[in-house]
């Protein structure tokens, strides 16, 4: 089954998305990005495969996302055709792998063995653990009317955990379409240079 988790601190933000999608699967709302802390997630969409016994089969990884948006024309919002194809193919390859695992379980070629599972784990540093504490307290204070104190803590979380796009985009200004895609977002993406926005997925057929 699918459990989707919205990393959304502001009450109400995910509502219209969920109502429009009207999903048949479980959709949860994580106002403190708690799941990101537990599974060391730093972006959306990221996924974890968990078997019937509650064991991690594939640790946190980009959920088939390809960073084709980086080649978008920022005026027309158009993506070159060949890039759009890589994006679509990545999603399809990844979703087919999920389906293969659902059907074949541990014998699926996409299910990691224990050594691979451990080798693919991303683990937090103490700075990242401290960042989650600052973020949680900061969001709680913002939600209870102490925006100044809370905002300061959220900024500190961003400083302590600069790889977290979920922290950064949560606190960023929004466009008319309510997306954290103002010029400061693009500046931050451009500053990545050769680094990935979505880490490559270690899977046959996925772009590396």
């Amino acid at each position: 089954m699918v459990i989707s988790v919205a990393m959304d601190s502001r009450e109400g933000d995910p509502r219209e998305w969920i109502e429009k999608a009207n999903p048949t699967y479980v959709t949860l709302i994580d106002r403190f990005h708690r799941v990101a802390g537990l599974y060391h997630m730093v972006n959306v969409p990221q996924a974890v495969w968990i078997d019937e016994g509650g064991r991690i089969v594939r640790p946190t990884e980009s959920a088939g996302a390809y960073e084709g948006f980086r080649k978008m024309d920022r005026t027309t919002l158009q993506v070159p055709e060949e890039v759009a194809k890589i994006t679509a193919d990545s999603k399809e390859t990844y979703m087919n792998a999920v389906r293969d695992w659902v059907l074949h379980g541990e014998s699926s070629q996409y299910a990691f063995d224990d050594a691979q599972r451990r080798a693919h784990l991303g683990l937090p540093t103490e700075e990242i653990a401290a960042a989650h504490v600052a973020f949680t307290l900061g969001q709680y204070l913002i939600q209870t009317g102490k925006a100044e104190d809370g905002g300061r803590l959220v900024q500190e979380a961003v400083r302590l955990h600069p790889e977290s796009w979920t922290f950064w985009r949560q606190q960023a200004g929004l466009s008319d379409r309510k997306l954290a895609s103002q010029p400061d977002f693009w500046q931050r993406v451009d500053a990545l240079g050769d680094k990935k926005y979505y880490a490559a997925v270690d899977m046959k057929g996925m772009p590396q």
């Binding site: 089954m1 988790v5 972006n43």
Partner: peptide
């Protein structure tokens, strides 16, 4: 843990 006994595809997303 309510969903123990089923495979779970846990996936993050956000409105922003």
């Amino acid at each position: 843990s309510d969903y123990r006994g089923k495979k779970v595809f846990l996936v993050s997303w956000a409105s922003w």
